[in-house]
Design a protein around this nucleic acid. Structure first.
Lengths: 226, 226, 226, 226
DNA sequence: AATGAATGAGGGTTCATTCAT
DNA sequence: TATGAATGAACCCTCATTCAT
């Protein structure tokens, strides 16, 4: 009846509500009428903003992914070295997923499943982050940080696959409560698997030559800290 | 009409057909009537064998997973060392998924999504293989092959996540045609990341400067093998 | 629930009911649920027998037209002369429409309007009667009963148009209660307009009274020329 | 926004657009929003001018019929004889319908179908022309031009029914491209069927009994004059 | 006067599931 | 045991219409 809220506010309210309900019950089992009721609008109003139920589904990630993707693009240029960047991207993913459990469930269980999603503008945005990851791996290979003969696509699949697996476990089993704390262990393992000899590490030797003529050699700090 | 086929044969026919159709159209978009028609039975007959549509879905992996799981259990005892076993399990997964695209699509897109599946006998079988993987990682940790401080669950998530990511890519994008050829690159990278020797990659050099003025250099253990 | 009636009986019941309701409220304003309720079946049952609401509509005339069309085909060969046949066909139409007011309303108000109906098997049957009429007019022209230069299509349009106009008036205004009584007036007027000579009616007699007292009678040529 | 057009211009624009769309898609399948968009106004504006969708439909013929009806009323007094007038009216109809295909489709398929239309002011106008036709037939009967025993309503139904049949055929089948060329054939046939001279043909025998004792018989004048 | 925005009301259609035969 | 036949229960979506601005 009354126009209490701005148009975009209404639309966002619908999107938020849909996100919540789609995440909880799954796309197929959620109904528009349930969403509209929860959003405080009528069924018809939902269709004012979204062409179909699926359109509503596909619109959700568009806005959520927008900001993180842009942020990551701003951050990366400030980081030196493929390893740093890679770690940053992984952290970005983990943070995003940890802070948006509903969105995570939606992506993992409803969107990745959906063939039509691949044709979507939303998917383009999602993909853009995945492409940063790929470029970063490629960069590491090109500048000799990573092994020449690794398959960057495989590495990316390892990273994304792991993240997704953790997210799904978390959603369905409640398993790893905390996602971000897996960033370093994960990245370290990945790096351990693709890094060309922990090069610099091997060089750091600390020589302590004592007055007494004794020379004491201590191992360089090569330990990774997790 | 006439009983041309044995009861189990009928049931299997239904399961096979359901697998195909569920994989192609998704659980929600497939209809019982479509499946029954394709299986050459009536709708009602499907309900003779399966309590509900979901029951039919959940029954599918039970039989398919049965044999591979048993095979793996037989094979593992013959293999020495966590690395070997781990490689074998990965190969088992990849082979299973590569040879059964429909089953793979079903697992990746329909079953992993479904909360109810977790309560299923089928899921138990699927889990049993995942548990072998976990035990094998744990074994590596225990006997010093793998780093003490790695999280075996995370490692398993890496392995399974990567496999699943490859499978989904293959299904939706047609991307990696061949799955099995990724076994060694994947396992090697994983091992590179968790193997104990990997740590000391760093070329630790021990300098013993003796009183006698002699300096003795000993090579550290740096062996990496990719 | 219980199968009280045979399958065809059910289908016919639905058709009858639909005929009644479509005729009363119009296709657009009638609802399936209304029809199914009146027919004593469920909505879903209607869709067991008919693919869509429009399919149900189009199926109706098929059966109703079937018999009259066949009857007319049997009758015509027994009639001699285009005029007789034409009169018979008109009587057939009028009788059919007079005895089936609902069907008439359906045809006049719902079907004639509908473009899709033209692609229908039902329409073929309806057309077949109209074609008999056309052939009959053509026959009259060919054998000299009717004027050579009349347009048989126009004549048919006159006949059918008049019939339909009467039917619609009757349905909407209640005007001519009786349709069949218009058969002869209508046909006579039509014949009056197209007959080569107002043949039988005109009693043209030529009297030649000869000198010899003989009176010779010759039939006169009364040909009309338009 | 800006008031670019006068109020009546707006209204007319809506009416014209509605005519077009109703004619093309049918009343039921056309939507207000479609019409308003095509007319360059908002949905709500349509409702400023017309109370309901049906009201809009019913308003359409009012203006279109107005002029032709008045014209015909002016013309008729200049014509002598029922036949002339009848022919003029038929020509009026045919011309109107030939020149306004959308209007014709609307009348034939949407308005004649609609019970509510009968209660409309628009219908009154439409009827007024039909009444002229009736009066003209009656006049012919009264002054002996037409048979005493013909039913003027039936004759009118013949005329209007034929016209309408031709119009519908034209609209749905594209059949007679040209309507006006059917005026004379139609009217001639009608006149042939109802004109008084047709009857006496049969009776008129001219006997010339000559002085010379010869009796000469001449055929009566049965020729129709067109 | 004009409209953007919202919605009530409803309708066609689908399908998993049941049950008498 | 197998199934033809029936349906209850929903759901997505549309649109004429309203009203505050």
């Amino acid at each position: 009846m009354a126009k209490k809220t701005s148009k975009t506010a209404r639309k966002n309210k619908i999107i938020e509500t849909a996100l919540k309900i789609f995440a909880e019950k799954g796309f197929a089992d959620a109904t528009i009428s349930e969403i509209s009721k929860a959003a405080g609008v009528s069924d018809a109003t939902v269709y004012e903003y979204f062409k179909t139920k699926e359109d509503l589904l596909f619109t959700i990630p568009e806005e959520i992914t927008e900001e993180p993707a842009k942020d990551m693009e701003k951050i990366l240029p400030f980081l030196r070295g493929a390893e740093c960047k890679l770690r940053a991207i992984v952290q970005g993913y983990m943070t995003l997923y940890e802070m948006n459990p509903n969105y995570t469930a939606l992506v993992m269980l409803q969107l990745k499943t959906n063939r039509n999603f691949l044709k979507t503008k939303s998917y383009e945005k999602v993909r853009s982050i995945a492409q940063m990851l790929l470029r970063c791996i490629q960069e590491g290979i090109d500048n000799g940080t990573f092994h020449k003969d690794i398959d960057p696509y495989l590495v990316r699949s390892m990273i994304l696959g792991t993240i997704e697996h953790l997210c799904i476990r978390r959603h369905l089993l409640g398993a790893p409560t905390n996602l971000v704390e897996h960033v370093d262990p994960l990245v370290d393992m990945i790096l351990g698997g693709i890094r060309v000899q922990a090069q610099p590490k091997s060089i750091s030797v600390h020589l302590h030559i004592a007055d007494d003529g004794q020379t004491k050699v201590e191992p360089g700090n090569t330990a990774e800290d997790t």
